[in-house]
Simulated assay, not measured.
Amino acid sequence: MADRIGASTSVVTHYVGGRDTMLRIAIRRQIDLRRAEGEAVLEGVKGAAALRALVEWAVLTPDEQTHRVWLALVLGSRGEPVLRAELDLFNDWWDSRVRGLLADTGIAEPDIGAACDVLDVVVDGLVVTGFDEGRPWSPARRKRALTALWAALELSELRVLRLHP
């Protein structure tokens, strides 16, 4: 990092304070950027349309490099408390937004947790498909999977989400 900014290592460590602080700053920058992008996607959109916009943003808009950063963050967080804490902050934001959007669609409170879990699994799974043994899923294939999910959750026409008939 010192070489990159044209400073000595001692200058960097004087201002940064150590490895954990440097790691936290770098990861928080990425997380704050992603959270700001997600919030921007939600501007002017409500209910089911906002839920779809947020999920589709998470799955379809990031480039491969962004997905690689997130995959590394998730995998690295297991043994790195600093990474785990930063990822938990993002996950808290995500879950709060998704739960709120699910509530806005009219879903009953007992079903919000299950619906949030389903959406988390789908989003995580579709991000990981980008690294499928050198044959990543195309955005079109991911979009088809999301379209099937919206239909299953009765969101294909932006109807109110109902998990139980």
Rank of each mutant, 00 (worst) to 15 (best):
T147E: 15
H67R: 15
V45Y: 12
L126C: 04
R99T: 15
L71N: 15
R159L: 02
R19C: 02
V123E: 14
E56M: 04
R141Y: 07
T105K: 13
A151M: 08
L87Y: 03
D88P: 01
N91C: 15
L149F: 11
A7R: 12
R29G: 06
A48Y: 07
L42D: 11
V69W: 10
S8W: 00
S8E: 00
H164K: 10
M1W: 07
C116S: 15
W94A: 13
Q30M: 05
D117L: 15
G76F: 02
Q30H: 10
A40L: 05
A58N: 12
A148P: 08
G76E: 00
V82P: 07
A2N: 04
G44I: 01
E37P: 09
V121N: 15
E86S: 01
V122C: 07
R141A: 13
R29I: 00
V12R: 01
T13D: 08
I112F: 02
R99M: 15
A26C: 03
I25A: 13
S156N: 13
H164C: 06
V128S: 14
D32Q: 06
G76L: 01
L149S: 09
L89I: 05
L33A: 09
H14Q: 05
V82K: 04
L75V: 09
A103H: 14
R135G: 06
P136K: 03
R4T: 09
L155M: 14
L33P: 02
L60F: 07
R28E: 09
D32I: 00
L161T: 01
L161K: 02
T21L: 06
A72N: 14
V55C: 12
G125F: 10
P110A: 01
A115Y: 01
E37K: 13
R24I: 00
L83A: 08
A140R: 10
V121Y: 15
R97S: 15
I27F: 05
V82Q: 04
A49S: 11
L71F: 15
D104V: 03
V121A: 15
W150V: 00
